[in-house]
Computed example of a mutant assay.
Amino acid sequence: MSDTHGQLMDGVYRYQRHFYDLTRKYFLVGRDEMIASLAPPPGGAVLEIGCGTGRNLVLAGKAWPEAQLFGIDISEAMLETARGAMVKAGMAQRAVLAQGDARDFDPDALFGRAGFDRIFISYAISMIPDWAAALAHAAKYLAPGGRLEIVDFGQQDRLPRLWKRAFFGWLAHFYVVPRADLCRVIGGLARETGMAGHCRSMARGYAIRGGLARG
């Protein structure tokens, strides 16, 4: 499954990766605010799942200059672009990127680490087939005091129906499916793990911001 999905994502982004950030700049709501709120401890480890072009990790590195940066993506094509972004930003020495599936990656094998102080997922949950398993898997690798932060498309529930129909149809062309049960799954994980969970709608339902915190 992971090989097939990785090949699919390579196909989708083989050319889009070159202009992805320019075209997504105005409608990936809430990601910059999420990055600005990460606040890892000094020298803390920050992992982005679905790091794509590396744009978000560069911002995280600038906002938190003492943080160690890690990223995984299932698309090797995207990782090629991300590695270039790290070099361009002067962060190649403090960032480690690896190909991995969000549902079963092994941080020890990939990075020589057992956990992370902050894990974030920006507009990738809507592209992961077994996304609920991916969330549960990520939560396992939160260090004590760690946080998992998520932002993704909402159900557009307080926006015009015509907008929702057209927008969801457009997203489907890129294999993007907003997850109606995201808040429910976060709440379930919070109960199962004893972590604190949060989830809220943003911008009239355009986006959802949620996450988990390990005490």
Rank of each mutant, 00 (worst) to 15 (best):
R179D: 08
L69A: 07
F116D: 06
F168I: 08
Q68V: 02
A172H: 11
P160V: 05
A124F: 09
P178A: 06
W170A: 14
C51M: 02
A136Q: 14
A60R: 04
G197C: 05
G115N: 10
W131E: 04
N56L: 04
Q68Y: 01
I49Q: 04
K164Q: 15
G194V: 12
G90V: 08
D32I: 11
E80C: 02
L189F: 13
L189Y: 11
G146M: 05
A109W: 03
I121S: 11
F167C: 05
R147P: 02
P178T: 04
A196S: 12
F174N: 10
F174I: 07
C199A: 13
L69Q: 06
E76V: 07
A39I: 00
R158D: 13
L162P: 00
R209W: 15
E80L: 06
R118M: 02
A114V: 11
T23W: 03
A132M: 09
A67I: 04
P42D: 03
G112F: 13
P42C: 01
L47G: 01
I74L: 15
G205M: 06
L171S: 07
G146R: 04
D130H: 11
A143E: 14
A172E: 14
A77W: 00
W131R: 08
L47D: 01
R118C: 02
R113E: 13
Q68N: 05
M202V: 05
G52E: 03
G188D: 01
F70R: 05
H137G: 12
M86C: 07
A136P: 10
R179Y: 01
M34F: 04
L135R: 12
R184C: 02
Y123K: 10
L142G: 12
G210D: 11
A82C: 03
T81I: 07
I128P: 09
V177M: 11
D108I: 00
V58H: 04
G44R: 04
Q156F: 08
W131L: 03
A82Y: 02
A139P: 01
H137I: 05
G154K: 06
A133S: 14
H198S: 14
D157Q: 15
G205E: 11
R214T: 09
M195L: 08
E48H: 09
L38Y: 05
A92M: 06
R200C: 03
V151T: 13
R14H: 14
R83F: 01
L38P: 00
V29P: 00
R14N: 08
V29S: 05
R118F: 07
E149R: 12
G112A: 12
F153E: 02
A85V: 02
P178H: 03
G169K: 12
R31F: 13
Y141C: 06
D73H: 07
R83V: 00
A92E: 15
L22E: 13
D32Y: 13
Y123E: 11
D3Y: 03
L22Y: 08
G169S: 12
K25W: 08
A77Y: 05
G54V: 05
P178W: 07
G188R: 00
D10K: 07
V151E: 04
A207P: 08
E192K: 14
F167D: 06
T53M: 06
G11K: 01
Y206K: 06
Q68T: 04
P65C: 13
V87K: 14
R113I: 12
A132T: 13
V96T: 14
